[in-house]
Amino acid sequence: MSQQKVAIVGAGPAGLQAAATLVSLGVSVEIFERNGSPGGHLKQWHALFPHFQNATHALNPLLNGVKGITMHLGSKVSEISHNGNTWRLLSDDGLKYESDAVLLTTGFNLFDASRKEEYGYGVYPGVVTSAQLEEMFNGQRPWPFDKSLAAPKIGFVHCVGSRDVKCGNRFCSKVCCVTAVKQAIEIRKRFSDSAVTCFYMDLRMYGLGFEELYHEAQVNHQVQFIRGRLSEASPAVSGKIQVKAEDTLMGRPLKLTLDMLVLMVGMEPAVKLTAQNNHLALGKPGFGDGFMADRELNTPEYLQVTPGLFVAGACKGPASLPDTIQDAKAVSVDVYNFLKTKS
């Protein structure tokens, strides 16, 4: 019996982990990645919650795990089709690949903050996204304010593009709350005289160690938590940003001048799967298009009627890195079992 083959679409943490697991189970794997390098969003990240683990320390084992596996970089899979027991992948650059199963690990995109114009992203240079802040921590991006500034004032806005019907995203992106707390602490560590304020709707500290991190931010780092949404950001003198918000606990409006405003952008699916005549197309999601549902939960028809197609990681819904890796391992076992029953 020849070795069975699995095609993995997406070389983020989920794809890399799944590849490593499947190879260890004796399955042949090829990975397709539309970007020029593997690692997904993780490779731009600086440190991870809740223990400030260096992101490269998390990424390196994943990359080491796929050594020797064929990886098609810069190859964007546009459609997959199913013929008998064989799956066919077709990529934009004309690459064709046949396999016994397909695993989609297409992950997420960050919400485009310019869609919320009132926050001034793309208008005022001091308004940045959480991902850009990680790049600043990494030294890959300059700070928008003078680093020699004695006491920079920095604000975080939670739920940008999440829990927002107007953006078509009803869901909570799950990880932004704790990311904001982590980043707030990092800012406080880096700029000892800085003042950091978080504007939140609800703080969701669901994971082990998250609540402790929140406690640490409040007690040790004097991060101010204000329950309220920002109304608008407007320019103030010398490149500063004035924000207005409602402090819902005080029941009073509030204004604050900041040197930098960080928008905690939420997650959106990176790929939309649509069933066409005889194949599945991987396209750009439109307004309100949700994540690919989990196989065990609200399984969409195309996943039910097409055995051999699997989905893992954040393309099923917002997930933290540990969640993603656990899921990739679990789904890999599903794939393995499926291949076993087929042979």
Partner: peptide, 9 residues
Amino acid sequence: GRINPKTTQ
């Protein structure tokens, strides 16, 4: 106008 700063600017 306040929620469309780009236009105003």
